[in-house]
Design a protein around this nucleic acid. Structure first.
Lengths: 208, 208, 208, 208
DNA sequence: GATGAATGAGAGTTCATTCAT
DNA sequence: CATGAATGAACTCTCATTCAT
């Protein structure tokens, strides 16, 4: 019945918010275990120890639940990353803070990231199109690209296409997110240092 | 009834091979349009203009079809990449050839790559584990890591962890593969040059 | 979701128990009409005026439904036979009571017996083995054999192999159960008297 | 294409007859292993090392194959039993010969009997009726009942309903046939002696 | 005579969703 | 608020049968 923007303008009660979080948490665990395709509402409800109907009550449907899951995690990630980036001084340090805080977030939320990835890659609208399409990535990409452009204007960075570079950074981060799931013994700390160096070199000025 | 290597040692007839390729091609198109989860045998058959039973006749089941699809594409990719790498002189050129030929293959087989990615990320065994797990990536990763190590021994490359670097390269390639699907107007040529430069810089010796 | 003994220890609700009985009753009628092989869940559901999914909801699967059907009838039969046997005085009368009450039960539950027989003879496990194998017959046979042995020890019966005799009695009963289905005009009352006499003679002492 | 009575009056060629027997033999083995319901033409063909089409060529369809299987075995059984019965002197000896030769045939053809039983119990016409119904049993029962009646007229047997007695004997024989399949260690020799004694006693004159 | 290929119906099962209580 | 019950569609897979070669 209820949905994201709560059209009536009414706030969600505390108890309702708790239920929603509980259901999303259960969905995260189920998805990270059996994958998106096998994560049925029945399984999610069973895992949460509630009845199937509860999910239907708190979310408009399966797609809504999945969408909320993604949004919740994106917001959480932004809450971790943004302050780190802002706190850093200079474009180079900001970009490095962006990379490092993103990977730190992944490290601290492995299951969530696994579930998020599954949903983003699989959730589709009725017409078959991916629900989280490239247009959504822009929102994530843009601030990073802006950061890179800034560094170039300020003369801290060398010559490169800031959009391409932004995509490379995102692919490195998302790739690490996938590895964390696939490779149980993946050394994310070491990989973070490696990745920071990679893009540190890539953004330097040519000569000097 | 039939399976991958035809254990009886019998060869597959020409007509059967053609049918299998037709079915796999149909699966590729359907998957790249509606995604793995919505790519039912019924849809694949309908798209191919054949009856559902034909698929069951030529493949042991849906999982077999998907597995064959992946294998076929991996083999095709290797057939394109390997000669290019071998033809290149010196470790640096080899690595660059690896990156460039991989991305060129992706460019020339967008839909296939899209389908492959979907299958690899979603196909699971009866126990819920991903069928193409990280162990399978090793096979792909190892030759690349060997190339990087070689370059270090020969003094052409600087100091870096060759496994991390290999994973970075793979993530850049796989990330591009995903972009090609998501972003219809993705400039893969430009991205190739950018990526080549990225790893060219990353593998250089420190000073000089 | 649910199963025979409800392992969680939870009781089944009244309404659920009623549905289960309704479904089993429908299965009995369908099986006794078209046979086990043609008794699909679709037909059973249609006969009961419900949707196919309901069966899956109340039973783990077709095999579970069939198993429950058999168990329910075995229990019902035991509830009829046991008191009659216990009430009889002397081994001979007990054996005759066993035969007569078994056949009376068959007479009163012709369709159920028909269905039961079909299921027991056809239901197989995944490995192809009959689900109700000879080991299960032992449970049914043993009390009867014990009765026969008792009569021999007490001197009421003559010399014979009690296991063979038990099997003969069971075959006579089961044979009658099959006849009741095949021969619509089978005179079970008359056959009961005949069978009682048959085994009365067979268990007598040699001389007199 | 061809069928039982070969309407054109043409004889079947030797090679064709051999193929039919080979197919029936394969059907017998498959049925006795996996049961009637799981005995698909594909499995029967595979077991025989031939293609599915061959079966369709030599039999009108699956039902025809099954019918031929039953007929072939009934004929074989009659060929064993009839001479033994005829050779015996006196009604009592004839009935005992009937029982003993039937059980001996079962002993010597366990798998065939298993398959036969499966088919007779499961094969149904399009209208759902058993193909080998009670009317067919009459053909088998009648000669036996005639034997029993004869013995009564000649004064060798006592008072009993010869039809009931015939059915009891058939049930004992068919029951043994089923046991031979279910109980791998069933002592059919011992059971034969037991059964012969059972009906020897049952047919005796009252006093004396 | 025999084969491989194809069909189309029907099987059991799972699932998201709806609804009365 | 929450539940259990029910629906109906879609899924994969198996099968007997047909047919061109």
């Amino acid at each position: 019945m209820r949905s994201e923007s709560e059209p009536g303008g009414q706030q969600r009660s505390f108890i309702e918010e708790a239920r929603r979080r509980q259901i999303i948490a259960s969905a995260v665990e189920v998805i990270s275990e059996v994958g998106y395709a096998n994560a049925s509402l029945a399984r999610i409800a069973e895992h949460a120890g509630i009845s199937k109907g509860v999910i239907s009550y708190h979310f408009q449907g399966k797609d809504d639940l999945m969408t909320q899951l993604v949004i919740q995690l994106y917001v959480s990630a932004a809450e971790v990353v943004a302050p780190e980036v802002i706190a850093a001084v200079g474009a180079r340090n900001r970009v490095l803070a962006y990379i490092e805080s993103n990977l730190a977030f992944i490290d601290a939320n492995r299951r969530y990231v696994a579930a998020l990835t599954e949903v983003v890659r699989n959730l589709r609208d009725a017409d078959g199109q991916l629900h989280f399409a490239s247009s959504d990535e822009s929102e994530i990409l843009e601030p990073l690209v802006a950061l890179l452009r800034e560094g170039q204007l300020e003369g801290e960075f060398g010559e490169f296409d800031p959009v391409f570079m932004g995509k490379s950074i995102r692919d490195a981060i998302d790739g690490a997110g996938a590895r964390v799931v696939r490779e149980t013994d993946f050394d994310l700390r070491g990989y973070t240092a490696h990745t920071a160096r990679l893009f540190d070199l890539a953004t330097r000025k040519a000569e000097e």
